[in-house]
């Protein structure tokens, strides 16, 4: 039972991070029906900039406690990724809004490559260790152990998600975003500045991505110029699993995917009599995705989304 609980906790931590990233995909998709392939790279840049900031501050003998140091650094990374998200939309997507549907997909892939290579130039090809500034206490819950970092990740994720939902549901900006997602043309007629809303969406998504990137790096103690791809892929899977375009779905999908993966890697060996080991955890995630889509073609919480191709 304790192993099971342990896997649930691990899954929750990873799943929360997936959810944060998945929101970035799903918000953009909801408005533009576009897979923002470069989002994974935003996540990576967020992690890298944060790590650099921490190292810079520590290197200059700034005397702050670990969590404060981290907060300050994230606060510096967020504007960077927001600017990047804004630029990506302006340069690579906006000119192609009326173009064939595949075109922005290719520019997105191109951007991904460019950002990866730029990151390689700045931070090198090797793993960048996450500075050991955070406390490493371990708590015991019902036989499972959880680090304070993991607790912090779960709480932080929950807080951010709540904040985002309040933003979307309660504010004027959120209402404009929802209207634009429903129908950009009508929203424009109603006086919503659709271009601004789209820019805002990219920036909010990028801010969430930066935070998620830092959490990924902290959770695994390292970052890498190519880390964005796999994390982004998983998060996108999560978004589709939950029903792309649906914010609640992205969260549900992220957390489910995290837990499925974690349990999958923990029990896959036992389940298949040793035939499939934990190295197949990715397969598990994708199989679940394929099955869900076959039986619920619009994802778990997806409404029927018109294919605007």
């Amino acid at each position: 039972m304790d192993i099971f609980l342990q896997q649930i906790i691990n899954g929750l931590v990873v799943g929360g991070i997936y959810a944060l990233i998945a929101l970035g995909y799903t918000m953009v998709y909801g408005i533009l029906q576009l897979i923002n392939f470069a989002h994974g790279e935003i996540v990576m840049i967020g992690a890298m900039v944060t790590i650099s900031c921490i190292n810079f501050l520590v290197g200059h003998n700034v005397n702050l406690s670990g969590p404060v140091l981290l907060t300050v650094s994230i606060a510096m990374a967020i504007p960077v990724t927001m600017l990047l998200g804004y630029l990506i939309e302006r340069v690579a997507y906006r000119p192609l809004r009326k173009a064939p549907r595949m075109a922005p997909l290719i520019t997105a892939i191109g951007l991904s490559i460019v950002l990866q290579q730029a990151a390689t130039m700045i931070w090198g090809k090797n793993y960048v260790p996450f500075p050991a500034i955070l406390p490493t206490d371990v708590l015991e819950i019902g036989g499972a152990s959880i680090t304070t970092l993991q607790v912090a990740i779960i709480i932080l994720t929950a807080v951010i998600l709540t904040g985002l939902f309040l933003l979307i549901e309660r504010t004027k900006l959120g209402r404009a975003m929802r209207a634009t997602a429903q129908s950009p043309d009508v929203a424009r007629l109603m006086g919503v500045n659709v271009n601004t809303i789209i820019s805002m969406t990219f920036m909010i998504g990028s801010a969430l991505g930066a935070i998620a990137g830092v959490l990924v790096a902290a959770n695994y103690d390292q970052a890498h110029a190519y880390m964005g791809f796999m994390v982004g892929l998983k998060a996108f899977t999560a978004a589709v699993l939950g029903g792309i375009g649906n914010l609640g779905g992205a969260v549900l999908g992220g957390i489910l995917l995290g837990i499925i993966e974690s349990i999958g890697s923990g029990y896959l060996g036992d389940l298949t009599g040793g035939f499939l080991g934990s190295q197949y955890k990715d397969i598990f995630a994708f199989l679940v995705l394929i099955l869900v889509l076959i039986f619920r073609p619009s994802g778990l919480m997806g409404e029927r989304v018109a294919e605007r191709a």
């Binding site: 998709y29 029906q33 897979i35 892929l233 996108f236 899977t237 589709v240 792309i244 080991g277 190295q279 197949y280 990715d282 397969i283 995630a285 994708f286 199989l287 995705l289 394929i290 889509l293 076959i294 073609p297 619009s298 994802g299 294919e307 191709a309």
Partner: peptide, 30 residues
């Protein structure tokens, strides 16, 4: 099983399939 899916859903399923094949190739030494 997947042709009923439309657009980006099909894209992500095929993507998953590609990953599955690669993962099996990497791990089918046992």
């Amino acid at each position: 099983p997947t042709l009923k899916l439309r657009g980006d859903y099909l894209a992500i399923v095929t993507l998953g399939f590609g990953q599955i094949v690669r993962i099996f190739l990497t791990n089918l030494d046992r």
